[in-house]
């Protein structure tokens, strides 16, 4: 049975309007696109104000005056729009960049470098034959892909050992293929979610 809920009808209209772009650009799609941008911007502003209130202003109201520094830094960001005082804007940006890098770099090195290198450097012979095959593939893939990015010694890309970076390139292409397959599945999964909504929640035929 077709839904009688106006909210479902509005959602169904915008679903069809948004996906109509896949066939051709049209005015209905543009209406849906602009509506979405407007709502998303409005929502972002509301959430931004809520964040300032909950994670900044509330602390100042509790007497934690150190949070006033954050407000000052936030206001300094708006000097970006002044030609004369543009330089003031650089200080909060420097703070943001320094803070972000400081928070992520130590853990990033541990997760991305040390753990991955340690895992790659594990013994090739594993408990099961399948794991051994996997370990050989990881070892070959890692070494050959790394060799592809050696630019300081031209000889590695030519002559008798020129096949090593070529194998690395094939390994990377295989990885890109896997990523492409997963991307297709993700997009279809999103589209399928909307098709299911239209057939089940709107038209009631499922």
């Amino acid at each position: 049975m077709v839904s009688s809920d106006p909210a479902i009808w509005i959602a169904a209209f915008f679903t069809i309007a948004a996906t109509s772009y896949a066939f051709r650009d049209n005015i209905v799609f543009k209406f849906a696109e602009n509506t979405f941008i407007g709502i998303a911007a409005g929502h972002a502003i509301v959430m931004g104000v809520k964040n300032i209130r909950d994670y900044g202003w509330a602390h100042i109201m509790n007497g934690e005056m150190i949070y006033a520094v954050v407000f000052v830094l936030g206001i300094m960001l708006y000097f970006r729009f002044s030609r004369e005082y543009y330089w003031v804007y650089r200080y909060p940006i420097a703070f943001l960049v320094g803070n972000g890098v400081g928070i992520s770099i130590r853990a990033g090195i541990h997760s991305d470098f040390i753990k991955n290198i340690a895992a790659t450097a594990s013994p090739i012979i594993a408990a099961t034959p399948l794991d051994t095959v996997n370990n050989i593939l990881i070892f070959v893939g890692c070494v050959t892909a790394l060799s592809h990015f050696i630019f300081t010694y031209e000889g590695i890309h030519k002559g008798t050992i020129g096949w090593i970076p070529k194998v690395g390139r094939w390994m990377m292409l295989l990885s890109f293929g896997a990523s492409f397959g997963n991307t297709v599945m993700t997009r279809f999964g999103m589209y399928q979610g909307r098709v299911l909504f239209l057939l089940r929640d709107w038209l009631g035929v499922v």
Binding site: S111, K115, N116, A118, A119, S175, A178, S179, N182, T183, M185, T186, G189
Partner: peptide, 16 residues
Amino acid sequence: LSMMTTSMKPYYDTGQ
């Protein structure tokens, strides 16, 4: 998302 799995699987493989 499935499209992120290839880049996130190393973290699973290394026990993170």
